[in-house]
Structure formats: structure tokens, C-alpha cells
């Protein structure tokens, strides 16, 4: 029965990543290496490993942080982090090692170099441009109807705040009913 479905999956348009899926599945169910390696008293703790893994992504389970990914590949990666920590590597060195091995995609953010600068530069520029357009727009609108508001303001200021508020509120409620 299972063979039949492997067949359909491989050949149908669905093209599920069968090989990956199958391996993820098997792997996740087999208790991983973590248990075996806790014996060394000076070994890095799970928390130290997770602190680094939290900010990394394994290509096998895209968009799931390494510290919570359940696949065998990810378990191996965590074991590797542990090993490197044990050898006295720093967090940056470990991350660099993973980048060299598996590419920049393992990092939670693109490294700040080359084309990747665009990621960081475009949103602020776009926001500032938007703010500028808005500012210009509001300015040009204000030119059309000047003074109008400023004339009324002082007279209202003198009045009792509550009454002013009630008047405004009633006015708005009345308008909203129209």
C-alpha cells in the first residue's frame, strides 16, 4: 500500500518532497542523539545550544527555527553546535562555520553585505518617502483653507471644557446619524 502512494506522490503533479518528508518522519520518531551526549559534566547545556540554535534556520525545515525543529538533520546540527561549544568556539565562530558550510540562509537575517543591504535600506527609505509625501500633501491642503480654524479656537478655549465637549459630541452624534 505504501509503495503505491510513493508512486503517486513521486509522479503526480503534487510533487511533495517525498524523500525529505519520509526522512523527516523517520527521524523525528527516533529519539535523537541529545540523550546520549549529556554524560560529560563540562558539556555545554541544552540552553546554551538552544540560545544559538534559536537564531538559525536549517534548510530542511524552512522557516522553523533550529531549536524547535524536530527533524534528524536539525538534531544533528544541534549536536554539532554542542560539539563546537565544547571545543571552545564562540557563537559568532559557530555561526560563521554554518554559513560557510550551508550558505547564508542558515542565518535568521541576511548578512549585511552586497545586495542584502537592500533588505535593511529599502523599508526606512520607503517610510521616509511616504512621510514626506504625506507632509507635502497636508501642507498643500492647509494652504487652501487658512485661518478658518484659528479664528474659532480662542473663543472656544474660554468656555467650560465640559460644555465644549458636550457640544462637540452632540454635533458629531447628530452628524453620524445623518
Amino acid at each position: 500500500m505504501k509503495r503505491f502512494f510513493q508512486f503517486t506522490l513521486d509522479n503526480s503533479h503534487l510533487t511533495i518532497r517525498l524523500a525529505l518528508l519520509v526522512s523527516i518522519v523517520f527521524a523525528a520518531f527516533v529519539p535523537s542523539l541529545v540523550l546520549a551526549q549529556d554524560t560529560d559534566p563540562i558539556a555545554p547545556t541544552d540552553n546554551e545550544v538552544n540560545a544559538i540554535a534559536k537564531e538559525m534556520y536549517c534548510p530542511v525545515c524552512e522557516n522553523v527555527p533550529l531549536d524547535v525543529c524536530g527533524t534528524q538533520a536539525c538534531a544533528q546540527w544541534r549536536a554539532l553546535i554542542r560539539e563546537k561549544l565544547n571545543e571552545g568556539w564562540t557563537e559568532d565562530e559557530i555561526k560563521q562555520y554554518f554559513v560557510d558550510q550551508y550558505g547564508a540562509r542558515v542565518l535568521a537575517e541576511p548578512p549585511r553585505q552586497g545586495l542584502n543591504w537592500l533588505v535593511y535600506v529599502v523599508p526606512p527609505i520607503a517610510f521616509l518617502a511616504g512621510a514626506y509625501i504625506l507632509f507635502r500633501g497636508v501642507q498643500s491642503w492647509r494652504q487652501i483653507e487658512p485661518d478658518d480654524a484659528d479664528v474659532e479656537e480662542p473663543t472656544q478655549d474660554v468656555e467650560k471644557p465640559t460644555d465644549d465637549y458636550v457640544a462637540r459630541l452632540e454635533e458629531e452624534l447628530r452628524r453620524s446619524e445623518q
Binding site: P65, G103, V106, E109, V119
Partner: peptide
């Protein structure tokens, strides 16, 4: 990024 450099990148939560 994939189109221009052929390499995937992750834009994740910190960003």
C-alpha cells in the same frame, strides 16, 4: 536574492 545571486536567504523574525 535567489534570482540575482542564486542563493537563498532567510528573512526572519529579528528583521
Amino acid at each position: 536574492s535567489e534570482l540575482f545571486t542564486g542563493q537563498k536567504v532567510t528573512v526572519g523574525p529579528p528583521f
